[in-house]
Amino acid sequence: MLPEIKRSILSSLEKSTMYSLLKDGKRIDGRNFYDIRSIKILPSIIEKAEGSALVYLGNTKVLAGVKVSLARPFEDMPNQGLFVTGAELTPVASPAFELGPPSYFSIELARVVDRAIRSSEMIDLEKLVIIPGEIVWMINIDIYPLDDDGNLIDASMLAVIAALMTTEIPKAEITDLEKGKVNVIKDEKRPLPLVDLPISFTFAKIGDYILLDPSSTEENIMQNRLTIAINNKGEICSIQKGEGGGFKFNEVIIAKNIAIEKVNEVRKLVVNQLAKNPRGPNAWEYI
């Protein structure tokens, strides 16, 4: 058995305050139901990673890093590069996370993000082939939440797409085609070929209310959550329902419509922040 995530216990006073606010259409932090907290992206923050980004979603902070290495492609996909997504929920981010084997949630988190990238075909995997069937680039994406104030899924998704957008892969020269030998030139780099930019939206259900981008306080009393990722064409490219409760048909449709309505705004924000925000090691000044 893998460990489950512990949740903090809320006082009944706080709980009843939250419910009565929800009745008036308000959330405990003053947001409307479908408001996303402020997003801040600091790109290329780890020099030793080929790509990285630190993302703030309100008080939630997630660091994602990308390492690239040479690997052998899968037998059945000789013309495709590889990518793997992992998430490490360390106690740095929250006292609810424990050291030891990965929890169910850390695996779910990594897989939900991975699926959105895979289904949207965000990375042009064919352009990562060096020798078909022999050597391809492998993209390792690792997610490290640093501060959990709720909605790690969307914050991680943003951190991962921002990290991928900053990723540069070195040049690989084939030195011996027969033996499958290549020479990696670290100083000559090209951007990772990207063709899509999936954005995820996570909703929490509390009572009969659907809230976008739940904070950790809201996550403590939510019955269930729903994550919907949207690709560049406005198609749904990944869905994950989580936690014990259930959604009604109408609630799913509302969540889907809100996600589609918000996606362009969020995508534009990501692109703008990557273009203008301080990057590189000095970005740590802006933490």
């Binding site: 780890i46 030793k48 990673a49 990285s52 660091l63 890093g65 990308v66 390492k67 290495s69 992992g86 490490e88 360390t90 106690p91 050291l99 390792n140 690792d142 490290y144």
Partner: peptide, 16 residues
Amino acid sequence: AAYRMATFSVEERKKP
């Protein structure tokens, strides 16, 4: 006390 390194903290990716 626990000391851990991020997978991307070094030149070659470290296993988690």
